[in-house]
Amino acid sequence: MPGLLYHCDKPLFQALAQEFRQQGMGLLQCDFDYADDPDFMNAPKMNQLDQIYRDGKSIGDLVQRLGDFDEMFLVGKSLGAMAMAAALDSGNFDQARAIWVTPGLQNSTLGDQIIAHPGRSLVLMGDLDPSCLPETLAPLREAVQVRVAVIEGADHAFAASDLFSEEDLTQAAMQALANWMPLRPHG
């Protein structure tokens, strides 16, 4: 589930999709157009959060209707992580593995929701992200089922900087994924 401006066509989502396909997994991608919706963008924050929650719950309901899966991974970035938390709450996703990309941990309950998810979780956080603070990451690091990977040079947008290209940041995130889950060799 993408972020406000970080959609499924961005490098990290493309790399994740490619890896999941190479692992022989089916893929359901959704994209949000909140940034293109002036009503959403001008709405009070609580209304925006309610919409994100409803959309996440709808996605979770849809996935439930698709049937049972041997393995399930959910990926959410930023506001997509908020939608993913709602999706995880919407049904029987206890065994689903969750990848939380730059979740907004400041002034939200998202950290508690990550910890409450009984399935394995990977949190990908850029060291330049405003939520990358010792006090926000410490509770996540203490949770047995959560692994936190801090990506050097990545900001909240996972954008290129003077020191790191978007390709560098994507490769670092994909290495964190490989360290978190056993990947089958390609080919």
Rank of each mutant, 00 (worst) to 15 (best):
L169T: 12
G60P: 04
D55P: 05
A172C: 08
A96Y: 05
S131Q: 03
M82P: 00
L88Y: 07
S161M: 00
K77Q: 09
G153M: 06
Q175C: 02
G111K: 02
T136P: 03
R147F: 00
G104L: 14
H117G: 03
A172V: 06
T102R: 00
R65S: 15
E166K: 14
T136I: 01
V75H: 04
M174G: 07
V148H: 06
I99F: 03
D155Q: 04
A81W: 01
I151L: 11
M72E: 06
L79K: 00
A35G: 01
N92E: 11
S131G: 12
D55C: 01
R147K: 15
L140G: 05
M72Y: 05
D112M: 04
L140E: 08
P103G: 06
A138G: 00
C132Q: 01
M72H: 11
M41H: 09
A85S: 15
D129V: 07
P38F: 10
Q113S: 12
I151N: 04
L79Y: 05
L105K: 08
L133W: 00
V148E: 07
A178V: 04
F93Q: 06
A86C: 08
E166Q: 15
M84Q: 11
G126S: 09
A85I: 10
E166H: 10
P130V: 07
Q175W: 08
M46W: 06
A172K: 14
I114M: 09
A83N: 08
K45P: 01
E167G: 10
Q48T: 03
D39R: 14
G126P: 08
A149M: 03
N92C: 08
G67A: 03
T102L: 01
D39T: 13
H117T: 05
L163N: 13
A157T: 13
D70N: 11
Q106L: 15
L122T: 02
L74R: 01
V75G: 06
A87L: 11
A96T: 15
A43T: 10
Q175R: 09
L66S: 05
G56A: 04
D68N: 08
Q171V: 12
R54D: 12
M84F: 04
D89Y: 04
D94V: 14
D127L: 09
V63D: 07
A81N: 06
D162A: 14
A116Q: 11
M72P: 08
